[in-house]
Lab assay of single mutants.
Amino acid sequence: MAAAAAAGAGPEMVRGQVFDVGPRYTNLSYIGEGAYGMVCSAYDNVNKVRVAIKKISPFEHQTYCQRTLREIKILLRFRHENIIGINDIIRAPTIEQMKDVYIVQDLMETDLYKLLKTQHLSNDHICYFLYQILRGLKYIHSANVLHRDLKPSNLLLNTTCDLKICDFGLARVADPDHDHTGFLTEYVATRWYRAPEIMLNSKGYTKSIDIWSVGCILAEMLSNRPIFPGKHYLDQLNHILGILGSPSQEDLNCIINLKARNYLLSLPHKNKVPWNRLFPNADSKALDLLDKMLTFNPHKRIEVEQALAHPYLEQYYDPSDEPIAEAPFKFDMELDDLPKEKLKELIFEETARFQPGYRS
């Protein structure tokens, strides 16, 4: 834990890192770190609560700039109880001085990944967590956004079992017609939660990839272990087919990539493993919904509104309290091709509203 900075004593240090967030945020305490930044909790002297502050230093890398800009653009436009918001952003007053960006968010005690390492969940908890994931996802999908990296560590939890989806750095506007060349190379989302079509096709992607990830998360809540822990690309596919069985001819016809289709045709026939054999203690309604989410063919996979209306979630289902976005989200430009200098300018502009004396 960093010592509390005395008023006016300059930035606090946390594990050798400068955290320049005073005077409003003090009493910093280390939480963890990701690929390009550290997260601390801090005391907000204005709202009198502890908050989470993520320090991001992305400006050396085009990919990190892209992810940072995506996350900020999306989260500043989203407003939903099951999606983490941005409360404040701290950065230098000029673009030349801006080396880091500090993002202030609600402090959540833990995440689903940490929880599943230590606790076996009751059916009631599984049901409530799944409902909140789908409630947040309904809003995301209504904005025409794909999260693309749903996994237990991106689901934040607090002691009252509130759940918030975080990390929109890989999110995209849904565009089933656009052929994202190089899709697989830039697709760094965790393999275990990846839909089979991501490994088999490169053309376009749809909201059904997020539903697949939610199915993987439900299976993990039922058993405290990942359902498809593939060691590499082909191993991942083999794990999936080992449980779902061989795809039907109709399902194979959806695979545009001939090499991928021929690979699947070359494999020995596998039978589907019954879900109640894998999860003998699970609620039968939970397994019915799991089956509809972990469907090989993305066109037959359940959609988020149908999933919310499934009998497993009937005690929570309330369409009048499951809000959607006001308007579909649009990125003005494809960020993939922009140089990091341009992305830095866009991050600077996007964060201006939090600067003292800002006038829109």
Rank of each mutant, 00 (worst) to 15 (best):
T68C: 01
N224C: 08
A52Q: 05
D20N: 14
R225S: 15
A92S: 14
N297F: 13
A195D: 15
I227M: 07
E12V: 14
A219M: 08
G182C: 11
N158P: 04
R67I: 11
P93K: 07
A260C: 08
R359G: 13
C161M: 05
A174F: 03
F78I: 15
A5I: 05
Y358T: 02
Y312R: 05
I227W: 03
P298Y: 02
K344T: 06
G136D: 01
G37R: 13
P247N: 05
N297R: 07
A195Y: 02
Q306R: 11
V173K: 04
R301Y: 02
K99A: 05
M333G: 08
D291A: 12
D175A: 15
L267N: 00
N224P: 00
C127D: 07
F183S: 09
R91H: 15
A219I: 06
R50I: 03
I72E: 01
N82Y: 15
A6R: 07
L222Q: 14
W192R: 15
G215L: 11
P152A: 11
R353I: 15
L335G: 12
H299Q: 12
N257V: 06
E220M: 04
V145L: 13
K270C: 03
P58Y: 15
R50P: 11
S223A: 14
Q105V: 14
E96R: 03
D177R: 08
I74R: 09
D149E: 13
E250Q: 02
Y139I: 07
D179F: 10
L184W: 11
V273P: 00
F228Q: 00
Q105Y: 15
M293D: 03
P23K: 00
Q315I: 03
G8Q: 07
I209W: 11
W192T: 10
I243F: 15
H239M: 11
V18H: 04
K330S: 08
G204K: 04
N154L: 06
H120D: 06
K259F: 08
P247S: 12
E96N: 11
A9G: 09
A352N: 11
Q105H: 13
V214I: 08
L265K: 04
A260D: 12
K151W: 05
D149L: 05
Y187P: 00
A219P: 12
Q249L: 14
K344H: 08
T63R: 15
N27L: 07
G169Q: 04
D175K: 11
L137K: 05
E109N: 04
W212I: 06
K330G: 08
I56C: 12
M98E: 03
Q236W: 03
H178E: 09
I95L: 13
R15G: 11
N297S: 13
L264F: 08
W212E: 11
K48R: 12
N262R: 08
C166M: 04
E186W: 02
K207C: 12
H310L: 15
E197N: 06
Y131Q: 07
P176A: 06
N201V: 11
G8F: 01
T181S: 15
Y102H: 04
P229Q: 07
G215K: 11
E250H: 02
L157Q: 14
D167F: 07
D167H: 08
N144A: 02
Y205A: 03
D44E: 15
L308T: 04
S248Q: 04
R77Y: 03
N238M: 07
A219W: 11
V21C: 12
P280G: 10
S246P: 00
R15E: 02
G22T: 01
F183P: 04
P298T: 14
A6E: 05
L264N: 00
P58N: 15
I324F: 14
L134C: 06
G16P: 06
V46D: 15
M293N: 02
L346D: 11
D251E: 13
E350S: 08
C216N: 02
A4T: 12
P298E: 11
I133Y: 07
L252Y: 04
A171Q: 01
A52E: 05
H141A: 05
Y358D: 09
V214E: 15
G16I: 00
G85V: 14
I217Q: 06
N201M: 07
L112D: 01
Y205K: 08
S29T: 01
L137N: 09
I198R: 08
D318L: 04
I89A: 03
L69S: 13
T68E: 15
L218V: 02
F183W: 01
R91L: 14
E326F: 02
C161V: 01
M108R: 07
H147L: 14
A219Q: 10
N45H: 12
E345H: 01
E345G: 00
R70P: 00
S29G: 00
H125V: 04
A309N: 01
K54L: 04
K164E: 01
V101S: 06
R261A: 05
G204H: 11
S57H: 13
V51I: 15
N45G: 13
L28E: 03
H239Y: 10
K48W: 13
P274T: 14
I209G: 10
G245V: 13
C40A: 09
T206E: 11
L244Q: 14
I165A: 02
Y64D: 13
L200K: 08
N238Q: 04
H141Y: 07
E220V: 13
V51R: 09
K99R: 11
P298K: 03
L290D: 06
F331N: 11
P311S: 12
K259A: 05
I140N: 13
S122T: 09
K54M: 13
D88N: 14
I133C: 10
H232T: 06
R24A: 03
E322Q: 04
A282S: 13
D336H: 01
F129N: 09
D179L: 05
V273I: 09
S29A: 07
I133M: 12
S284E: 09
S122F: 06
L76G: 02
Q355A: 04
N224R: 10
L241D: 07
L137I: 01
E109T: 02
K285E: 12
I240L: 04
Q66H: 15
A307V: 10
D88T: 00
I84D: 10
C216M: 08
K272L: 11
L156G: 11
P319V: 07
I227A: 01
D100C: 13
R194Q: 08
H180G: 10
G245P: 08
F228H: 03
K99Y: 10
I217H: 11
N158T: 13
P328R: 02
R70A: 10
L115W: 02
A35C: 07
A143Y: 00
Y316G: 02
G16L: 09
Y317G: 08
A52C: 07
E326C: 03
K272W: 12
D332I: 11
I240H: 07
S360H: 12
D235N: 13
C166V: 03
V273E: 15
L338A: 06
I198K: 09
E186P: 06
L234E: 04
M38R: 14
F183G: 06
A52L: 02
I72D: 06
D235M: 07
V145N: 05
D288V: 13
K54G: 12
N271T: 12
N47M: 09
K272S: 10
F228G: 00
N281T: 15
R70K: 05
P339D: 08
A195I: 10
N123R: 02
I89P: 04
P339E: 11
P229C: 01
L146H: 04
M108T: 03
P268Q: 10
S320F: 10
S320T: 14
K117R: 01
D175E: 12
Q236G: 08
D288W: 03
K48I: 14
Q119M: 03
I255K: 10
R24E: 05
A189M: 06
G10M: 10
M98H: 11
G34C: 09
D291T: 10
T159I: 12
N47L: 14
D336L: 07
A174W: 03
N271W: 02
Q17R: 10
F59C: 15
P339C: 04
M38L: 15
P152L: 08
G37S: 15
I227Q: 07
D337L: 10
Y316P: 00
Y102S: 13
D20R: 03
L289V: 01
H80S: 02
K138D: 06
S223C: 12
N271G: 04
Y113P: 04
N144F: 10
D20M: 01
E220F: 02
L157N: 10
P11K: 09
K73L: 11
D336I: 06
L244F: 06
Y358K: 11
L157A: 09
K117G: 08
L308N: 01
E350Q: 10
E197R: 12
S284V: 03
G182N: 04
H239I: 09
V14E: 07
G204W: 14
I56M: 14
E322R: 04
C40W: 13
M108E: 07
N253A: 07
E33Y: 12
P229I: 01
K151G: 04
V214C: 09
A352I: 06
V104Q: 10
L258W: 06
Y317N: 14
H120P: 13
L252G: 06
Y128L: 02
Q249G: 01
V145I: 00
T206D: 05
L278W: 02
R301N: 02
F329P: 00
I95K: 11
T68P: 15
E96S: 01
D167Y: 14
